[in-house]
């Protein structure tokens, strides 16, 4: 009797989750039409989607149980790498953004060598401190990076031509929005693939019971490094996109604690053990912050992020999406269930 009741409730919850997802997706697709009068709304959502991508990238490491407080290192290096390549060699951002991601991967390797011997709290503290290394170097390498002055006048994404059609990212905020949305969807699909692959299985096993994971043959350190590198690469790519969208960067901005904190907060509030949770949290919390709290409290509106992370860790450790989808997190199905 009780069993059927809970099953019924769970089904309702799952249906609710699915409808939220579908509605949200349709909303995101139609947003440029819905908000055609307001560039501001579109701008906020463009940034929200960018942050969602960042949170997805963070969670590639997060799913292995390691909490990084140092992803701003990859974000900043990706932004600077891409910006400098485009400024000094005149390459198109389409090329320099992935290259910036590769530079971030190099930095991720360095972070891995230093920090991955550590676990849990000590890993988190080490990553928090690590950010200072690329930041201070960028700050001091005046000849290359112009130091704390920052880099201005970065090229934006150039127009894409496909036969007779062309998309001009300079003129159309909607085009930029769809570009960012596409990258977010691509990364989300990739994360879904990773979660369902043996790599994902290994990372989750490491998170749950490292000793047992080792005993079934998972090469723990190798997988942890791999997830850090992949996570670092995509964080660097997002950093590069950010640089060419904002078209101005400085060390205090791109290496700031903001870009370490925000993906962690979104991932934990949304649900570290889910594929979409981190992205959904970004898509909800950032607009709430911008549309509701920013007008109310111009100074100090970001207290929201502090409040939600405290509530999430203390009262909903699997995140809101993880909580809604509880019972349906099985990624690999049996024949019988299908």
């Amino acid at each position: 009797m009780r069993g059927t009741k809970t099953t019924k409730r769970r089904h309702q919850e799952l249906r609710l989750a699915d409808s939220i997802l579908l509605l949200g997706f349709v909303f995101l697709l139609l947003l440029p039409v819905l908000a055609r009068d307001s560039d501001y709304v579109l701008q906020v959502f463009t940034h929200a989607v960018l942050l969602a991508t960042l949170a997805l990238a963070w969670n590639i490491l997060g799913v292995s149980g390691s909490i990084s407080l140092g992803h701003a290192a990859f974000f900043g290096v990706g932004a600077y790498g891409s910006a400098l390549l485009s400024l000094n060699f005149g390459f198109s951002p389409w090329l320099t953004v992935p290259l910036g991601g590769l530079v971030a991967t190099v930095v991720a390797t360095l972070m891995g060598l230093i920090c991955l011997r550590l676990r849990g709290a000590y890993f988190a503290l080490a990553t928090l401190a690590f950010v200072e290394i690329p930041k201070v170097i960028t700050d001091n390498w005046d000849g290359l990076t112009k130091g704390s002055l920052g880099l201005v006048g970065l090229p934006g994404f150039t127009a894409l031509r496909l036969g007779r059609y062309s998309v001009d990212f300079g003129a159309s905020p909607a085009a930029v929005y769809y570009l960012v949305l596409c990258s977010a969807l691509l990364l989300a699909s990739l994360v879904a693939l990773i979660f369902r692959s043996n790599l994902g299985l290994a990372l989750q096993a490491i998170r749950e019971e490292e000793v047992a994971a080792e005993a079934v043959g998972v090469q723990v350190q190798r997988y942890r490094l791999l997830s850090l590198l992949v996570s670092g690469f995509f964080t660097g790519v997002v950093g590069g996109c950010y640089a060419h969208l904002i078209r101005y960067i400085e060390p205090g901005l791109v290496y700031g604690i903001h870009f370490s904190a925000v993906p962690m907060i979104f991932a934990i509030c949304g649900g570290r053990f889910t594929i979409l949770g981190p992205a959904l949290a970004a898509l909800i919390l950032y607009p709430v912050d911008q549309f509701i709290f920013h007008p109310l409290l111009p100074a100090g509106h970001q207290f929201l992020y502090g409040a939600v992370i405290i509530v999430a860790v203390l009262f909903m450790p699997s995140g809101f999406w993880g909580h809604l989808r509880k019972g349906q997190f099985a990624l690999l199905k049996t024949r019988s269930v299908e």
Binding site: G120, Y305, G306, I309, I310, V313
Partner: peptide, 25 residues
């Protein structure tokens, strides 16, 4: 809840954000 060391980092990080914004205000 466990792991307390790690969770204390995340929670106090949130408190730090709260305080920073409070001071800014």
């Amino acid at each position: 809840s466990e792991p307390r060391e790690l969770n204390s980092i995340v929670v106090s990080f949130g408190i730090a954000i709260l305080l920073q914004n409070g001071m800014l205000f």
